[in-house]
Nucleic acid binder design. Structure first.
Lengths: 106, 106
DNA sequence: TTTATATGTAACTATTTGGTTACAAATATA
DNA sequence: TATATTTGTAACCAAATAGTTACATATAAA
């Protein structure tokens, strides 16, 4: 599967998005992640496998635990795609221009 | 399925992303779309169904043809999600700040 | 060394996806 | 009216997803 495909489909699940947000704050081991969800630990493992395949997260083994962390760089595979939509970027640019003018004084 | 889910999974397919880019330029009927791909017209119909369900695309009937067009607004369901990642927005903001300073004079 | 903990994987089920071909229905045209 | 065009849908298949429970494995702790 293409990089962009795997990133978008990794993001197409509520639980996986929640995992990403959690890991963007701090690395966590599997049990710590699983505690935050109602689904079983093996289900979390499967989600982690999908996230790993998309390279949005990676693991480091520490003793019997495995710490997962977020790889922000991989998000660009998805974010970059949106650039096709020039008008979007124009709008964002205008919005940010206003924001900067307001917060910094023009 | 949640809005965000359906948008991300709609985007998780190369052919559907290509359709979106095409429709962002101009509305097209099904045959015109299908001509640009190697897969069968019914396969295109299925993709259009998924895109419609995500509301990224909508159709207007004109005689026996159906013209599909892109709904940019729906993209925000996906784009907004990325805001969780503050550092990303900070980077973009800095990049845009530089860009604006360069093009407009600070 | 035995036991407890952390994690992965296997096997299973139901649903969705991405493709196919065949056919139906609606509209335009000869 | 008969025919051609445009599109949708049904029926099928193979693969992937999202979950489950049961079991295996590796490491830590008693």
């Amino acid at each position: 599967m293409s990089n962009t495909n795997s990133v978008f489909s990794a993001l197409a699940d509520e639980n996986r998005r929640k995992i990403i947000v959690m890991l963007s704050r701090e690395s966590m081991n599997v049990n710590a992640i699983a505690e935050k969800f109602r689904i079983s630990r093996p289900a979390i493992s499967k989600h982690l496998r999908i996230l790993e395949n998309s390279k949005l997260v990676s693991q480091v083994k520490e003793g019997r635990e495995r710490y997962y962390s977020f790889n922000p760089k991989q998000m660009n595979a998805a974010i970059d795609w949106f650039k096709f939509y020039d008008m979007f970027w124009d709008n964002k640019l205008n919005a940010l221009k206003k924001f900067i003018e307001k917060t910094q004084g023009s």
